[in-house]
């Protein structure tokens, strides 16, 4: 197990260095001068321009810039946003909880519905339920979420008036950031159930939109994994011993069927980040997706390279943990790769 861990680390570190190089290089290939964008095309004398450039370290050679970026990144400093002047890490920390909260709730929604759908479809194979659930998950898997979000708004917000269209919580609530998760912070701020309910209502549509593809993936994976397990000898043995049908399915079947499903859930983390960019744009959700899209448009080098590095690190971290968990559960994996 330790050897596996060390091997994984040897893969993770070069990947992280590669990500930092790509993030650094890509944003510098974008045409447009960040300093000019900041001070405007007119109104700046060449001296001010040079001064500004030096202040952001943009007058140095590219390798030097990368070296400086990496040295401070390792020390936990990702520089300052050219746009707001605040630290990149600070800005990221402000917005990340919003994305994380949305992602968690979306994943919760996906598991809550996807898992039972997959189990029922497998147990009642070729029944109406099987066909219905698998059709739903096939459609869900193909869903353009930017359209799905709009359709949810059209139906639930515009026509039924049940849910708000955008934002995280009603404007009447003043919730100071404590954990960054509004579902938690409303209690700390003393807004009680009314505030909590408002936050939940704001979360419903974006989480549904973001969770739809994961739901479909989980339902499909659960079904095929469950089908495989249902045919195993130990299932028949357990039945022969007198365990009830439901008992066998839950205790013997589900526990073994869940291993690949948990892996898929872990790997969906990367998808959640990608989906968050679109979902946050549709629902004006103040998370990192929207922030990064805006920063690319503003040529805010430090924000884009720092933000991409942070997101990619998070994805790599999650994937590595999934790998480790899988290797722990399945010794065969440790010997491969």
């Amino acid at each position: 197990m330790l050897a596996f861990l060390v091997r994984r680390l040897f893969v993770v570190i070069p990947t992280l260095v590669g990500v930092s190089l790509v993030a650094f290089a890509l944003i510098r290939l974008v045409p447009g001068d960040p300093v000019l964008l900041l001070i405007g095309e007119r109104g700046a004398s060449p001296e001010v321009y040079e001064q500004m450039k030096a202040a952001y370290g943009l007058d140095k050679s590219l390798p030097t810039q990368y070296g400086l970026f990496m040295r401070s990144a390792v020390a936990g400093d990702l520089g300052q946003s050219i746009h707001s002047g605040r630290g990149v890490l600070e800005e990221f920390a402000d917005r990340f909880p919003a994305t994380l909260e949305l992602g968690f709730v979306a994943l919760f929604f996906a598991v809550l519905f996807g898992l039972p759908m997959g189990i029922v479809a497998a147990v009642k194979r070729n029944s109406v339920f099987d066909y219905a659930f698998m059709s739903v998950s096939l459609v869900g898997y193909s869903m353009p979420i930017f359209w799905w979000g709009l359709i949810l708004i059209l139906f639930f917000s515009v026509q039924l008036g049940w849910t708000p269209v955008s934002g995280r919580i009603g404007i009447v609530y003043d919730v100071p950031a404590w954990s960054g998760f509004l579902l938690v912070d409303v209690w700390k701020a003393g807004e009680g159930w009314a505030g909590f309910w408002s936050a939940v209502r704001h979360l419903l549509l974006p989480a549904t939109a973001l969770g739809t593809i994961p739901l479909a993936a989980i339902a499909r994976m659960t079904r095929s994994s469950m089908l495989e397990v249902l045919g195993e000898d130990y299932m028949r043995t357990a039945r022969a011993k007198g365990v009830s049908r439901a008992g066998v399915i839950v205790v013997h079947g589900l526990r073994n069927a869940l291993v690949p499903v948990v892996t898929v859930i872990g790997l969906l983390a990367g998808h959640i980040v990608t989906g968050a960019v679109l979902t946050e744009t549709i629902f004006s959700w103040p998370g990192i997706g929207r922030w990064l899209v805006a920063s690319v448009a503003a040529r805010d080098y430090p924000v884009v390279q720092g933000g991409i590095l942070l997101i990619a690190s998070a994805v790599i971290l999650i994937n590595t943990m999934v790998d480790l968990a899988y290797a722990w559960a399945n010794p065969k994996m440790r010997l491969q790769s």
Partner: peptide, 23 residues
């Protein structure tokens, strides 16, 4: 390793940056 790097970057974000570079 290069594919590892590319796959750990969120695809839509990567596409956005590439489009911004190319126009």
């Amino acid at each position: 390793r290069m594919t590892d790097v590319m796959m750990s970057l969120p695809s839509i974000l990567l596409a956005i940056v590439v489009v911004t570079i190319l126009g």
